[in-house]
Amino acid sequence: MTDLSLVLYVEDDADIQTVARMALEMVGGFTLRTCGSGREALLAAAECKPDLLLLDVMMPGMDGPTTLAELRKLPNTGTTPVIFMTAKV
């Protein structure tokens, strides 16, 4: 079983970032590396080796699925588990 401690969280909405940070860090005990865009996530992933990718589906510029496709090309995130999130109904 893999230890899931470092989460690379990609979300463009600051309010949703705040709520998720409280839930994941304070309640869940995870360490978050938060990014506001897909491009920012690519830079962050080159610097860290996350245990889990948590991606917003709908973001301006580079959406979640496109971000994941690019993250899959990087050695640190080529096989990292991913969860997609959305605030849309």
Score class of each variant (00 low, 15 high):
residue 61 G to T: 01
residue 12 D to C: 04
residue 59 M to A: 13
residue 58 M to Y: 13
residue 62 M to R: 02
residue 56 D to C: 13
residue 58 M to T: 12
residue 54 L to Y: 13
residue 78 G to M: 09
residue 49 K to N: 14
residue 77 T to W: 01
residue 28 G to A: 07
residue 60 P to W: 06
residue 75 P to N: 08
residue 11 E to D: 05
residue 72 R to L: 02
residue 66 T to Y: 02
residue 28 G to V: 01
residue 32 L to I: 00
residue 48 C to M: 15
residue 76 N to H: 02
residue 51 D to Y: 13
residue 52 L to A: 11
residue 54 L to S: 11
residue 29 G to R: 00
residue 18 T to H: 09
residue 39 R to P: 12
residue 9 Y to P: 03
residue 15 D to R: 08
residue 8 L to T: 03
residue 65 P to C: 01
residue 11 E to W: 07
residue 85 M to H: 11
residue 52 L to H: 04
residue 62 M to C: 09
residue 23 A to N: 07
residue 11 E to I: 08
residue 71 L to Q: 11
residue 3 D to Q: 15
residue 43 L to D: 14
residue 16 I to Y: 08
residue 73 K to D: 00
residue 43 L to K: 11
residue 35 C to A: 14
residue 38 G to Y: 02
residue 30 F to M: 09
residue 10 V to N: 12
residue 80 T to W: 14
residue 13 D to F: 12
residue 18 T to K: 09
residue 35 C to N: 10
residue 77 T to D: 02
residue 22 M to L: 06
residue 13 D to W: 12
residue 51 D to L: 15
residue 35 C to K: 06
residue 37 S to M: 08
residue 42 L to F: 01
residue 26 M to K: 08
residue 13 D to L: 14
residue 47 E to H: 15
residue 22 M to Q: 05
residue 85 M to A: 10
residue 40 E to F: 07
residue 77 T to C: 01
residue 69 A to D: 08
residue 45 A to N: 09
residue 8 L to G: 03
residue 13 D to S: 11
residue 56 D to W: 14
residue 83 I to F: 14
residue 62 M to S: 10
residue 52 L to Q: 03
residue 53 L to T: 10
residue 34 T to K: 08
residue 16 I to Q: 12
residue 88 K to I: 14
residue 84 F to T: 07
residue 51 D to F: 13
residue 41 A to V: 08
residue 36 G to L: 09
residue 32 L to G: 04
residue 86 T to D: 11
residue 24 L to C: 03
residue 13 D to R: 13
residue 38 G to H: 05
residue 21 R to D: 15
residue 80 T to H: 14
residue 52 L to K: 00
residue 61 G to N: 06
residue 22 M to C: 00
residue 58 M to W: 13
residue 64 G to K: 06
residue 41 A to I: 09
residue 8 L to A: 02
residue 29 G to D: 01
residue 59 M to H: 13
residue 70 E to L: 05
residue 25 E to W: 09
residue 69 A to K: 02
residue 7 V to T: 04
residue 11 E to A: 03
residue 1 M to W: 05
residue 74 L to S: 00
residue 18 T to S: 11
residue 42 L to T: 04
residue 22 M to I: 04
residue 85 M to R: 07
residue 57 V to N: 12
residue 12 D to S: 06
